[in-house]
Simulated scan of single mutants.
Amino acid sequence: TAMLTLLLLPLLLGSAWAQCPAPADLKNADGTKVCAQLYENDSPYYAQCCGGQVLQVQPGDDQPYMPLSWNDKISSLVVAPRCELNVWSRKGKEGYNRKFSSGVVYRLQEIKKGLIGDWDNSISAYYC
């Protein structure tokens, strides 16, 4: 059993790290579709992105102002199939705008915003 424990240990420890879900796996508890999930944290390692607090975005959600404590806090995101997430860099749908189609964005710091910025901790409004 010691050998079995050694084999399972990386699996158990690995599950403690955040891991981005597949876009097709975005569902509410009742099985209905979630449009996108926004995450507070990212990581230098893709396998550990999508960590921290999670904000679920339902189809049709229109937020010109981010929910309390979420403004400029998003570092990773996942968008479901047949969904599109529109984001803005300033409250009231002002500033820079970007559309994210279905897929995983492990680190928003890798997505350019304007000439010198990026989208990490930069989302202040969204529509899905």
Rank of each mutant, 00 (worst) to 15 (best):
G52E: 05
Y96F: 11
N28D: 07
R107Q: 12
S76W: 02
K33P: 07
D25F: 03
D42A: 12
E94G: 08
C35M: 13
G117T: 06
C83Y: 01
C83S: 11
D30F: 09
R98Y: 12
S89V: 03
L68S: 15
D118Y: 05
A80N: 09
L108D: 01
P44G: 11
Q109K: 14
D42I: 03
F100S: 00
Q56S: 12
D118H: 14
K112Y: 03
G95Y: 04
N86E: 07
D30E: 13
G92N: 06
K73W: 02
K112V: 11
Q109S: 12
K113C: 02
S101W: 09
Y45I: 12
G103N: 03
K73A: 12
L38H: 04
K91I: 10
D118I: 03
R98T: 04
A24N: 14
N28I: 02
R107Y: 02
C35I: 08
Y106T: 04
K112M: 07
V57R: 03
N28Y: 14
P64D: 09
L55W: 04
S89T: 14
G52L: 08
Y45F: 13
D72T: 07
D118T: 09
R82A: 15
L38V: 13
R107E: 10
R98L: 10
E94L: 15
V57G: 01
A24I: 09
K113L: 11
Q53H: 11
L77W: 00
V78Q: 00
V87A: 02
W88P: 00
S75K: 01
Y45E: 10
P67T: 07
N86T: 12
Y39L: 08
L85T: 04
S69N: 13
